[in-house]
Design a protein around this nucleic acid. Structure first.
Length: 487
RNA sequence: GGCGCUAUCGUCUAGGGGUUAGGACGUGAGAUUCUCAAUCUCAAAACCCGGGUUCGAUUCCCGGUAGCGCUACCA
């Protein structure tokens, strides 16, 4: 009956991580699936580690992925008095109490416990202080702690993990308000999720163990807790939690590597969620955003952690690249070429046409956007080098210089200059000189593209155009003559 | 250490008391060819271990093991 409201609440202590992106995606999918509201909230209560410029970066990454939010971003740093009020309310109800222990003291006690190999839990030094004792310590900075009942148990039903129960005695009296007046995470989330009328908390499983504490807080203020759904973690290839050590972990890094947002999104969606079978009864992995929205459900989210498999992402990216509609292909390739500095800001009609023809040629073999500006470079600019490996592999034949020169001449006056005629022309020359066509083709490929690997030679010729082809063949012939000094 | 969670091919996963344990990425072989990619065919590849329950467990229960998470005046 009431509207579904979910939130994504990153803390600006780093760039948007793929794990965070997946959490955002699942929240977004859930909201869109149910016609609910997706709220964005910035958890910046850790003043030391939060950086405003990271907020911008996170927002940009979300936008790039197309995860649009309906409300926010709200900033926790702007709601400090609200948290303080909740803390005071908790204290008034005797669910919280002031603690005068300093971090140093606690640190020392904890260290001692650990040295004696005894489990540490806040020892409750300030838990039952009398009014007089509290008065006596007024001059010391104070934090506010939540009073966890020492008996009983706390439980909740997680949409993904099922029923979770913990003994209250295993929970410690955690801090709600730091001595500098800043709220801790627990106080912040509960207050915000309450105020923002969040109905479903969908977040990483690293919060699973924290949830009972929050449930306790909801009970303390006699508010119904939201529904929780925890997501399995994303791990690196070594099965450790994914971190910078593993290389690229931020959304921005993948963007820079030429990954398409739709591919990253699709890949992330599959890391922990299995879509139901398609209408044809077959399992499917490639789903459009709309299909995902339609198919998404928390029930189909898996419980076990998943290793981030870059190879599969690369495959999925090439899959998306290959099926990109022409207009979008043009747009992303042009963008890529411009940022690589090999395409004019304002291309003329001729260049636009070449862009289209070349992009289409490269499309089926590109794994990422970078392949257009790197592997496909020679199709867009005259400035390219001969790859030494390609030279070593295909420029071995002795008479190549002369052959290429001759080919250049014939092609220069070939009429018409099309797919069949260029091929016929080349094959005829090869036959006359008793060379295998493949040898000439490969040699010409290196001459035209500088590479051993490129699209079909005659397609490349058409894209480059007669003049450029002749010119590059001659340039190669020159190069060969200069470098073929017998040794 | 304590507490919590998890466990199917190398990876992501489907399945579920009786199945040839299915799919995808990756890997290998072949077809094709002008290099590569694409495509097509084929192949190898998994139910963590031990007990129970049962006529029958990969599936249900218990224990072990392993991994991960939490155990902060981080989030």
């Amino acid at each position: 009956m009431s509207e579904i409201r979910v939130r994504f609440a990153p803390s600006p202590t780093g760039f948007l991580h793929v794990g965070g992106a997946r959490t955002a995606l699942y929240n977004w999918l859930f909201a869109r699936h149910h016609g609910g509201v997706f709220v964005l909230r910035i958890e910046d209560t850790d003043a030391d580690r939060s950086k405003p410029e990271l907020v911008t970066a996170i927002l940009e990454s979300l936008q790039w992925l197309g995860l649009d939010w309906d409300e926010g971003p709200y900033y926790q740093s702007a709601r400090l008095d609200r948290y303080r009020r909740l803390a005071i309310e908790l204290e008034r109800r005797d669910w919280a109490y002031p603690c005068f222990c300093t971090p140093d003291e606690l640190q020392a006690k904890r260290a001692r416990s650990e040295a004696e190999r005894r489990p540490w839990k806040y020892d409750g030094t300030c838990r039952n202080l009398s009014a007089v004792e509290r008065q006596a310590r007024r001059h010391r900075p104070l934090a506010l702690r939540f009073r966890v009942p020492d008996t009983g148990e706390t439980s909740f039903d997680d949409k993904v993990f099922g029923h979770i129960t913990v003994e209250n005695r295993d929970l410690e009296d955690f801090v709600l308000l730091r001595s500098d007046g800043q709220p801790t995470y627990h106080l912040g989330v509960v207050a915000d999720d309450l105020d923002m009328r969040i109905t479903h908390v969908i977040r990483g499983a690293d919060h699973l163990s924290n949830t009972p504490k929050q449930v306790l807080m909801y009970q303390a203020i006699e508010a119904p807790p939201p529904t929780f759904a925890h997501l399995p973690l994303i791990l690196g290839p070594d099965r450790q939690r994914l971190s910078k050590r593993h290389g690229a972990t931020s959304v921005g890094a993948y963007r820079e590597q030429g990954i398409l947002p739709e591919a990253l999104l699709n890949f992330l969606a599959l890391l922990g969620w299995t879509p139901p079978k398609g209408p044809d009864g077959r399992e499917r992995e490639i789903l459009s955003r709309d299909e995902m929205v339609l198919a998404f459900s928390l029930e189909a989210v898996s419980k076990s952690n998943a290793v981030f498999d870059f190879e599969k992402l690369a495959w999925m990216n090439s899959e998306y690249l290959r099926h990109l509609p022409r207009e979008r292909l043009m747009a992303v390739v042009e963008q890529e070429l411009k940022s690589a500095g090999i395409w004019p800001e304002r291309p003329n009609a001729d260049e636009r046409q070449r862009l289209q023809a070349a992009a289409l040629l490269l499309q089926s073999r590109a794994r990422n956007l970078r392949d257009f500006s790197c592997a496909g470079r020679a199709l867009f600019t005259d400035e390219f080098d001969y790859d030494p490996q390609a030279v070593g592999r295909f420029w071995k034949e002795g008479s190549l210089a002369e052959l290429l020169e001759e080919l250049a001449q014939r092609l220069a006056r070939l009429e018409p200059f099309d797919l069949t005629e260029t091929e016929r022309c080349l094959r005829a020359l090869a036959e006359e000189r008793g060379v295998k066509a493949g040898v000439l083709i490969n040699a010409a490929r290196v001459a035209l593209t500088g590479q051993a690997v490129a699209p079909g030679l005659f397609e490349v010729m058409l894209v480059l155009g007669r003049e450029r082809v002749a010119q590059r063949l001659r340039r190669a012939a020159d190069y060969l003559r200069r470098n073929s000094r017998p040794s």
